[in-house]
Simulated assay, not measured.
Amino acid sequence: MTVTVVVGNPKAASRTSQAGVLLAEKLTGAAPDHVIELVELGPGLLGWGDEAVAAAKKTVQSSSLVVFASPTFKATYTGLLKLFLDQFEGGTGLKDVVAVPLMLGAGPAHALAPDLTLKPVLSEIGGTCALPGLYLIDSTFAEGPELDAYVERWKPVADALTALRG
């Protein structure tokens, strides 16, 4: 099983990245195989045909489980993540990928953002989005009970889905 974390934070090595890696580790019992910091792809995301973007896309498409992690900006995911997701074909771009939406924010006001904004896009491009989105407070994501409660509830589903996909 190949596990990838896609990080849509405009700052590399962010808390968003840390939370995405932690979620992937807790869901699978191992470190992710790949962490894609979209900020490192830079202007290549603004067009089509960039080799680094194509390689990142291929990595995501060959993964069994992908955590898509973003900070919450204006009640939704970042434009950086949107630019990357636009690279995928509708309906089939994430075929056979279990996609897990994760968003971090400063407070609980946007707790529904992963399910209302990110999950529909992941579904639209073909991701299997059987797990609900996870929203974490960025200052307490590592210590709070929310991450462990989510994993306890949804790890069996993630395991079953990834086992089906090989």
Rank of each mutant, 00 (worst) to 15 (best):
H34L: 09
V5Y: 03
K82G: 12
P145N: 04
G105H: 09
A158C: 02
K57G: 08
M1N: 11
F141C: 11
Y77E: 03
F73A: 12
S63K: 00
D115F: 09
V53M: 10
E37C: 07
F88W: 12
A111G: 13
D50R: 03
E152V: 06
E146V: 14
E51R: 12
V98P: 00
P43I: 01
L81H: 08
F84L: 01
E51G: 14
P156H: 03
F73P: 05
G42W: 12
S70Q: 01
H110D: 13
D33P: 11
T92W: 02
D138G: 14
A130G: 12
N9I: 05
I137R: 13
P120G: 11
E124R: 05
F68E: 09
F141W: 14
P156S: 07
D148P: 02
P101K: 09
P132G: 11
G90P: 03
A24M: 15
P71Q: 02
L94D: 03
A111S: 15
M103W: 08
W48Y: 12
L118R: 01
R153W: 03
G93E: 01
A56D: 12
K82L: 00
V67E: 08
L161A: 06
P156G: 02
A142N: 14
V151E: 04
A113E: 04
A158H: 02
L131Y: 09
S70F: 02
G8K: 01
A31T: 11
V157P: 09
L81A: 04
C129T: 15
A12E: 07
F88R: 11
E146P: 00
I137V: 10
L136V: 07
A55G: 04
L22N: 14
P10R: 10
L94W: 05
P32S: 13
D50N: 10
S63V: 04
W154H: 12
V151W: 06
E124P: 03
P71A: 07
L80T: 03
G166H: 15
G127C: 01
D96N: 14
A130I: 13
W48H: 15
G133S: 03
M1I: 02
H110S: 11
L94M: 08
P114E: 02
A113K: 01
D115K: 07
G79K: 06
G49C: 03
V67C: 08
K155I: 06
T2I: 04
P120D: 05
T128V: 15
V67T: 03
G133Y: 01
R165H: 06
S17T: 14
G79Q: 09
P43R: 11
Q18A: 15
P120A: 06
I137H: 10
A30Y: 12
D50H: 04
A13N: 15
L81V: 03
L45V: 01
R15N: 14
V100A: 03
G105K: 11
T92R: 13
P156K: 05
T117M: 14
D138M: 15
S139W: 01
G47S: 13
D33G: 15
G44F: 08
V67K: 09
I36M: 02
L45T: 00
